[in-house]
Design a protein around this nucleic acid. Sequence first.
DNA 1: TCCTTGTTACCACATATGTAGTAACAGTTA
DNA 2: TAACTGTTACTACATATGTGGTAACAAGGA
Lengths: 132, 132
Amino acid sequence: MPPPKLSKLELKIMEALWESGPCSIREIQERFPQRSRPAYTTVQTTVSRLEAKKAVGRVKKIGGAHIYDALVSRDTAQRRLVDDFLALFGGRAQPIMAHFVRAGKLTLDDVQRVEQHLRELAAKAEKGSGKP
Amino acid sequence: MPPPKLSKLELKIMEALWESGPCSIREIQERFPQRSRPAYTTVQTTVSRLEAKKAVGRVKKIGGAHIYDALVSRDTAQRRLVDDFLALFGGRAQPIMAHFVRAGKLTLDDVQRVEQHLRELAAKAEKGSGKP
DNA sequence: TCCTTGTTACCACATATGTAGTAACAGTTA
DNA sequence: TAACTGTTACTACATATGTGGTAACAAGGA
């Protein structure tokens, strides 16, 4: 049961559920900016597909409407996305970072935060692997 | 003429051209590891699609075979990939980095290299915007 | 209870992609 | 030149995805 592969539209729908918690189809639909709001049935179809993938589930029924909720966390879904993406680059993140920089998506601040995080992990690992 | 969107298989084929330069269909096919080598015609079909996307072009003909070459650079293609991917994360690279770290794909060394790069860019920008 | 309205269930369809078969043809070689 | 062999040019087909229509149904109000 590895996290399912989600398409772009599916991700947007998951995003709605991650942000707002359990929702009906209509609620999900209405979370799309009016500009690019898919038809009610489009959301319906896509949610059904997410259901088939076990990415969402029906948690209850209010009136005649089913209420859905995410079954996979944002973190889990993103992990899958990132792993697949990394595979496209032969598993090496370095070139990807370079593109982030080029695109101005990484500030010195961002990088330093990551660096700090890495140092902490290293320290923790050090302690964990204590050589008695 | 924004860089075309390339699929996974299309990317693998581009990779062959980027690495080896002009190739015939057969040469491209033989660059796939025997394990996962698509049929000759599969490569053929995919190259035709790449041609339609203007991602590759015929540069000459040797014997009866056409020789193809990449029309978009690896850098350009990757840029498109990265941009699309970033969009999935709302354009924010930070959460992606976090996943890279979790996946053990970013070492302290990698990060420091990026940091260094950023500092250099900053310095250059400083000089460029010299206030006379 | 009957009608109105929102939902659900299904169906349909176009595009992208991975995958591959087949017929026809061009080059090479005996 | 006639047979062989490798290529091309087309076609086919399954799956994933985006997109949306339609019919039937259920819940609540008049």
